[in-house]
Amino acid sequence: MRNFIAFIKRFRVFLFFALLQGITFSIYFSYLQFPKYQYLTSASLFSGNILKLRNNLTKHFYLNYNNSILQKENIALMDSIPSSFIKLDNGLVKINDTIFNYQYEYTPAIIINSTHNKRNNYFTLNVGSKQNIEPGMGVFSSNGVVGVIHNCSEHFSVVKSCLTKDINIDVMIEETGDFGLLKWDGEDSKYGTLWGISNDSKVKKGSKIITRGGGKIFPRGIIVGRVSKTQLVEGKPLWDISVKFSENYKSLQRVYIIKNLLKKEQEKLESDTPVNNPK
């Protein structure tokens, strides 16, 4: 026993160091896998408020760029409202439509903090669970996909962006319909990689890449980017496709959060279907 106490006394500094390192690493790895708490992320009230204050100061820096994007979006919307069309047929009666139903609900949000040079980059938004935001919802902007909500508190939420190691968004090439997973290799915030397309299908440079709508998060057809380079993977019948993102994540500010209203229905249906029961 005395030896044990002497041991602890001798190595108390190293043991204290190891204890603190252990706490830090357990925080690090548990956050990477499943976010349990909010108080150590920028979704916490303290950090969230500091970042909101900073955003109030810096949000005007990209005002011109953001205004032009909003203007373009407005024009596109103006083109689609009924009053901008000329009525050619006067004989029809308007009927309340019951064939179409809402499947997706959109919430606007502003990015108040973002990083782009780390291995895993997270964005902080100014909306939270009070605005019915939940982890697992998709986030996109008018130029392309941004990411998936990772964690949220009452007033803020953290987005796992496309610039993350294992974002794995379900995407496809628009022309041919081949689908794969979107990944990021950590080097350049302008390029991502598309993984999982077999090399017997032809991939044209410049062809459009859109979301596939299989992951119950995004609807089909939100743009991700364009093919910029194709390369064969050694030893596997796969293409290594590099994707140029259509969104510039460095100056991104306004995003939309998308909620799939029929997600639970689809999940329930899929979980009821027996896939491969081991006998």
Binding site: Q21, I27, T41, S42, F46, I50, T115
Partner: peptide, 11 residues
């Protein structure tokens, strides 16, 4: 906690 790095800076 401010820059969402989950403990790398601390370590």
């Amino acid at each position: 906690s401010i820059c969402n790095t989950y403990g790398i800076h601390t370590s």
